[in-house]
Design a protein around this nucleic acid. Structure first.
Lengths: 232, 232
DNA sequence: GTGGAACATTGCGCTGCATCAAAGAAGGAA
DNA sequence: TTCCTTCTTTGATGCAGCGCAATGTTCCAC
């Protein structure tokens, strides 16, 4: 699969890059393909590459010393990942990247990224803008986790996922997400049991429809109400 | 109180700035003084300035629609705050900044920051590095909140605070922190009751000494053990 | 010093959610 | 098809930590 410079324009950080820069990026990168459940990198690995997902779906997660995991973020095509470790020289990845389905990504050398950042203030600025949005999202999720009940957090997570996976998976009736109960639990800081109970409840109420590793949002507005704490 | 360019060198983001740049920054900024419990800015305000604290102590916090608060970070002299809102044009502050004691800060115009970032890749890069460390800290705290028990989170928070407030407040016997139970509760996503019980317990065990709005760490290594989940 | 406001402590009951256990679907391989 | 693995559901139980209420302590203003 060959990538063209114009494909890279879909990457937010490269949206304002020149044709030359895009060419250059492609020249200094390779495609890596990773099968479902395999890994692009592990937390603690030396950050040699930064990635741009070209197909598939990847989750970024972090685990504590005793092995419990949290999901930090799900990556969709044309999103970057591994950029955090790649910015500082000789840094390590602060998270683990696992493919949720067969995926491939463009791997750009960190050292090359540094050169780009030095020579293109525009790309540096766009990357910085992306980072501020990450920080804000993490702060919001942190506040959620600290102050909101499970119900609200799960509703919020589903809404957020629906927004990120975007229009592409929209069916005539509802937005379809492909996550296991375990995945959702790790995103919201709870357990798969609680998620299962919650989803069953919402399905009974007709807000969603569920299946094995599948959640279809039928009435997103109802979820918004729950997220806002208006229920109960 | 007049600031010299060399004072600004203490700011991580300006450590590699040239004398000219520093002069320029000073010329395009003003000093703002804020009394204890008053505010530099509120969440949602248009981000007109970014600040560098010159004296005092400031807390950054976020509140949800129903008014509950979480403390995101405590700012010490020569640290920046409000930078997140200031990077993007026409952005708003994602958090509220409240002075914990009488404080003053250098207020730099956001629009001027943009100019600096365009002309100085070095400063842009240093700011980006700072942002990656923010993201990493938020991710770590998010994981903590999701996977660890209150005990561990509080121990971690105290250790982190001790590290940030640094050597300056070190007495012959212990590291002194000035936070109310409520403050600590908002940092760790719990309640002041639980904090009070916990601190009383640790005081009985001789790990810390407490007072009104004061916590003195006597045996930090014991707290580290608790944070690591080795107790119990 | 006196009164009041802000902060801290502690007992008690309650509950949201985790944890454990067991059994039921759904898919994949052969 | 059948077996096996992985994912999901649901009941039963327990407890960490919340929320309330009452009391104590510290500090500040007058």
């Amino acid at each position: 699969m060959d990538l063209l410079p114009r494909d890279l324009k879909q990457v937010i950080v490269f949206q304002n890059a020149t044709e030359d820069e895009l060419q250059n990026i492609l020249k200094n990168s390779i495609i890596r393909t990773v099968e479902e459940n395999e890994f692009f990198f592990f937390q603690g690995d030396t950050a040699q590459y930064l990635y741009v997902l070209t197909s598939g779906q990847v989750k970024l997660m972090q685990s504590n010393p005793s092995g419990q995991q949290v999901n930090l973020r799900t990556i969709h095509p044309w999103q970057m990942f591994g950029a955090l470790g790649a910015v500082r020289a000789e840094a390590v990845y602060p998270a683990t990247a696992q493919a949720m389905e067969d995926s491939s990504a463009l791997a750009i050398e960190s050292s090359f990224l540094h050169k780009i950042l030095e020579t293109s203030p525009q790309i540096a600025f766009d990357l910085m803008t992306l980072m501020t949005s990450y920080i804000q999202e993490m702060q919001a999720r942190y506040r959620e986790l600290a102050t909101e009940r499970v119900e609200q957090r799960v509703a919020n997570a589903l809404i957020r996922l629906a927004g990120q996976s975007g229009v592409k998976s929209r069916k005539e009736a509802g937005i379809e997400l492909t996550f296991s109960r375990q995945d959702v639990a790790e995103m919201t800081g709870t357990t798969l049991y609680t998620i299962s109970r919650l989803l069953s409840d919402w399905e009974r109420k007709g807000f969603i429809e569920t299946g094995r590793e599948r959640i279809t949002l039928l009435k997103p507005h109802e979820l918004v109400r729950i997220a806002d704490g208006l229920e109960k």
